[in-house]
Amino acid sequence: MIKLENFHKSFGSTEVLKGVSIEVPTGSVTVILGPSGSGKTTLLRSINFLEPADKGTMILDDKVFDMAAASKKEILEVRRNTAMVFQNYNLFANMTALENVKEGLVLVQKMGRYEALIKAEYYLEKVGMINREHFYPVQLSGGQQQRVGIARALALNPKVILFDEPTSALDPELVGEVLEIMKKIAKEENSTMIVVTHEIGFARDVADQVIFMEGGVVVETGEPRDIIENPKEERTRKFLARFSNR
């Protein structure tokens, strides 16, 4: 279980997170929706300290972290128990697909070379990339890169995987393959996932919980059916109306 309590974050004088609290049970999928600039990316990035929060507490299973006063050791601990899938993939450009997945296993988790290889290949197989394992990122399409990115995150068996708009940089015809993989791992791997996306369909089909954010606060939280089909808040309704019109 991961629980965020009262996350605050400002850039200069603009407050981007104004006391965000969310809870995600182990093995469940939470989708965060919200208009551009509402702070979704910032929230995800504050979880693994890429953008440290000014204030807030995080509970990761049984460990409590004060986000504003975490030591270097605690930051590493959080990062080693979480993984992130980036909007623009961020695969290590100097490594093949296989090496990308193996890197964290060998270097961070100190796994033996052989064991790491087996595990990395298992996850590349899972995302359908085993036949491209020796390709470098530049030699892969966006969708393929993102699938490797997902394998890299999965292989670490993190307590939670953070997805920041994993399909929004992709050509439309490649979005489907990545969403399929995400659906598959939600089902098969029982991973705890927090997904920021504009794919309402994915939220409806896969999420256990949907959170609607706007202006740095959580406006509404609930089951996908409740939030998407009949949102209580006017702001949520307005946001969703844009998608049903398309």
Partner: peptide
């Protein structure tokens, strides 16, 4: 993003530089 990805999987700053950023 290369540095961020390295940090996100829990690499130390030293490893992130020697394994990812400096080779590039």
């Amino acid at each position: 993003g290369q540095m961020e990805a390295a940090k996100s999987i829990g690499m130390t700053g030293y490893s992130a530089y020697t394994r990812v950023v400096l080779p590039q």
